[in-house]
Amino acid sequence: MVDSFACSFLATELDARSGICSVVERLQDMGLPEARAHEVQIVLAEAVNNVIEHAYADAPLGNVYIHCNLNTERLWINIHDAGAPLPDEKLPAGKLIDLSGPTEDLPEGGFGWFLIRALTSDIRYERRCGNNQLALCFEINANEAETTNVVP
């Protein structure tokens, strides 16, 4: 059985916060397990923050479109926006950030893509007709150890 839904919200931090919360609640109502719901919330927050801060950085206020497709094995979430493309239209590597240096040099950002990659089982990006399409896949039934893809 496949369930899907779509929604959209304005690309502002507060609208994103409530929009993402609604998406996650709806997915939980559709049977998404709590552990996955946590991971989806983290990944959506990161991906949508990127749209707000980067894709729409120099543009007038735009929308973020979310489409979810859930079956018993996996959840695909598509995030679509009309903002600027990813640099070189490529997915960032999102490597684990080195924290071994002195405190005063610790980074305060750059963790977003690492978290997205660590918590998804597949990511696809496409630039089409001036729009960004980012598709994120979450395995539903795999246990924690299998789904956390941490690349050192």
Binding site: I42, E46, N49, P107, E108, G109, G110, F111, G112, L115
Partner: peptide
Amino acid sequence: DSSGLGAIV
């Protein structure tokens, strides 16, 4: 999220 993490750092 990562912004909150960065703010704690």
